[in-house]
Design a protein around this nucleic acid. Sequence first.
DNA 1: CGACATGTTGAACCTCATCAACCGACGTGG
DNA 2: CCACGTCGGTTGATGAGGTTCAACATGTCG
Lengths: 250, 250
Amino acid sequence: MHGTVTSILPDVMHRCDHCSVRHQAVCGAMDEVQIKKLAQIAHRKKVSAGQTIISDEEPVDFFANVISGAIKLTKTLPDGRQQIVGLLFAPDFLGRAYSKNNPYTAEAATDVEICTFPNAAFERLVGEYPGLQQRLFQHTLDELDAARDWMLLLGRKTAEEKVASFLYMLARRSLMTGCQHKNTPGMSGFELPLTRADIADYLGLTIETVSRQLTRLKTSHVIRLSSNRLILVPDMAKLAQSAGQDSLHH
Amino acid sequence: MHGTVTSILPDVMHRCDHCSVRHQAVCGAMDEVQIKKLAQIAHRKKVSAGQTIISDEEPVDFFANVISGAIKLTKTLPDGRQQIVGLLFAPDFLGRAYSKNNPYTAEAATDVEICTFPNAAFERLVGEYPGLQQRLFQHTLDELDAARDWMLLLGRKTAEEKVASFLYMLARRSLMTGCQHKNTPGMSGFELPLTRADIADYLGLTIETVSRQLTRLKTSHVIRLSSNRLILVPDMAKLAQSAGQDSLHH
DNA sequence: CGACATGTTGAACCTCATCAACCGACGTGG
DNA sequence: CCACGTCGGTTGATGAGGTTCAACATGTCG
């Protein structure tokens, strides 16, 4: 389970110009001159699903942008109980500034592509360009908002609401980012980036409860399941209602 | 319940030199010249317990330092279920940069004293002094860490562990900040800043369960209750164990 | 094909929520 | 001054929502 990064592709030829997240990630705060400096210290890596990227037990010596795939941030109790405390997608930033030892473990939930920066060099850039620090700051604020939303879910929602909220979040993501296949207004289709076990760890439930609630949502026609991993949402408003939240909200 | 700030004391004579949190709060990042500018826009206010300081329904036009007392940040579901997503104490900072509409409600849990800064003026200062922005950034990172710790608690801990974790957090706080009465090494005494209802909202439980777990911890001699609000912890390690976490951790 | 991982479904159990009664402290007004 | 209502807190009885344990289904890879 706990392996290390497998295939490391330094990709010397890589220039940020061709990067799919050039303008959305933190790099978006940088102009042409700055981005050139960044490109010199950046290295792309591929990480396969299940691999540990950052462990809470070892110091971290790099930051990273997520290029593709999903990364889960987990915390574990001494007796093994686990909770996913964050999920990172395409333009998100991985790493905790001002602290070498991350308070969580980062693991590839799917096959993942990341763009890493050595710790020291990146922090020097942050010092040079206040805009970059502000961008990181804003990203952290967004993460904090998301974490607090999730606290409400974990503390106060029922199992069905939890699962529906999770799907609702992914469905909105899919409507935003992806010009996917089945995405007409009020209708969304997407692939689950997590296994049932991971979903359970994200929602504070067991695998079995997640499975049952999914079939429950299916039989009540809130969602459709093409395969185990493919979700179709015919009516977003109905899903939002099952999630127990204002559909206006967000 | 939802009132507004009652007694507003502009306190023109106030100078930051005499402030009890001058060097711990975000102000700690500022030198004498800068702090003088800050003093000009700062206003102290007293808020009595139960008053709403910031509502998630109205835009906010100020930031604030907490001088004394406890502030709870709450989120509420449409049907009334509530969750406390953050607790603010003495040198903490209240307010979300880069966004007028807070995603949560801030309410005085006890009588509170805060030092407020008008939105625009403060953000101008943040722009002028990068050190201040960094300080805010670090504070936000700490809040994020705390939020994620709490996610683990909400998602994976039992009722007893939740209550014990809450007490353990307060006990450590008391050992750090307070040169209080009963604070010998491995021993801590403190006052609960929250009612049972608030504790329940913080832990994702009901009032009754909180009450039962408290008496349970009492009868198993992990804590002692002088009054409803006064807690004595004879053995921190035992409390940490009841909380289900490494006593080394933190 | 068999081994293994992932997911579903069923039955029994248990923790915690719910509903309700009760207690003490406090404040108010007759 | 005491009856009364309110508020914060405790305790008990009951039941529902999720967990646990177990069996089974499906898919994949050697």
